[in-house]
Simulated assay, not measured.
Amino acid sequence: MSKWLRNALLLLVVISPFSSAQFEPQYPIIEELSWTDSSYLAKQRARVDRLTRENTGTPIRGDKTDLNTLQRVVDRELVTNDDKLTLQALGVVLADVMLTAEPALEWKIYEDKRGRSRALCIKDTQDCLFPVTMLSRRMKVGLKPDVKKVYVEAMDLVGAQLPPLPYGETREYLPY
């Protein structure tokens, strides 16, 4: 083996532990939804719509009235605490209500060292909410969350991250 090749290999061995750190992703990574993600969210909405039509006679409308519908689902315990998929579907509907209230939000994929999640993020920032689990984490342990309170608290967090409105206007995320 030539001296040049041996030195080059030695240099690679010495540098490689340090260079691998340069190739680790910088978290969080925020990306657009894929077609698969959008399809998944649509199926989740349909799951809740079917549940609410069959059990309460109320469709999912995509507006603030859905908060009342979600509360009926919670209060009547229409979803068991071990039905993770349906519990998270309730969060998708909650997120859609948030989207109607705040145009600065958009669905994104948020990835960090813990994994990949669907999130509502403030446009052009890394500030995100995770509404898919806002109800499910509470319900999973047997709680009956106040859907409107969860909504208002989440929206207040978002509002605090947005620039002030002109003319001294304030953001109000009342659930009515």
Rank of each mutant, 00 (worst) to 15 (best):
K123N: 04
K148Y: 02
Q126H: 08
K84C: 00
S117V: 03
Q22C: 11
E31D: 14
A95D: 06
V97Y: 03
S16K: 00
M139N: 08
L41N: 08
K148R: 15
T56M: 01
R72D: 14
V92R: 06
L51G: 12
M98P: 07
P17H: 06
F130E: 04
C121Y: 07
L129Y: 08
L87H: 07
Q126F: 01
Q44D: 10
L5G: 03
G62F: 01
K149A: 14
L157E: 14
K144N: 10
G91E: 08
P163M: 02
L33M: 07
D66F: 01
S19M: 07
P28D: 11
P28L: 05
T100M: 03
L87V: 09
E111K: 14
D96F: 03
K140I: 05
L129H: 08
R116N: 07
T58C: 00
Q26L: 03
R50M: 05
V93M: 02
L87K: 04
Q22E: 07
R53L: 11
T65K: 08
S136H: 08
F23N: 05
V73Y: 11
Y151N: 05
T65I: 05
L143Q: 15
P103Y: 02
E169R: 13
R116M: 04
T69V: 15
A8F: 12
T69L: 01
P25D: 06
D37W: 01
C128V: 12
R76E: 15
L105N: 05
E54W: 00
L5N: 11
E31S: 15
V147G: 09
Q71F: 06
L5P: 03
L5M: 13
K108G: 02
Q26K: 11
D63S: 05
D146I: 07
T52C: 06
I60G: 01
E111G: 00
V97C: 06
S19G: 04
T100C: 00
Y167F: 11
Y110H: 12
V73S: 12
P166Q: 04
E106I: 01
D127I: 08
L11M: 08
A46G: 04
I60K: 01
T36Q: 13
R137M: 02
L85W: 07
T52L: 03
L51C: 09
D82K: 05
E102Y: 01
S16C: 05
R137N: 14
L51V: 11
E172H: 13
L5F: 14
D83W: 00
V73P: 10
V14A: 15
C128G: 09
V141Y: 08
L157K: 14
A160W: 01
R76T: 12
R118K: 13
R72E: 15
D63K: 04
V147M: 08
T56R: 03
T133S: 12
L120I: 13
D124H: 12
E111I: 13
E172Q: 10
P28H: 10
D49M: 03
I29Q: 15
L120T: 13
L120S: 13
R50E: 14
Y151Q: 04
D82L: 00
R171A: 06
G115W: 07
D112M: 02
K140R: 15
L99T: 07
V74E: 13
E169Q: 14
D63Q: 03
L162D: 09
M139R: 12
R116I: 12
M139A: 09
E153M: 06
D124K: 13
A119I: 08
E106Q: 14
L67F: 09
R76N: 15
S2P: 13
V79P: 09
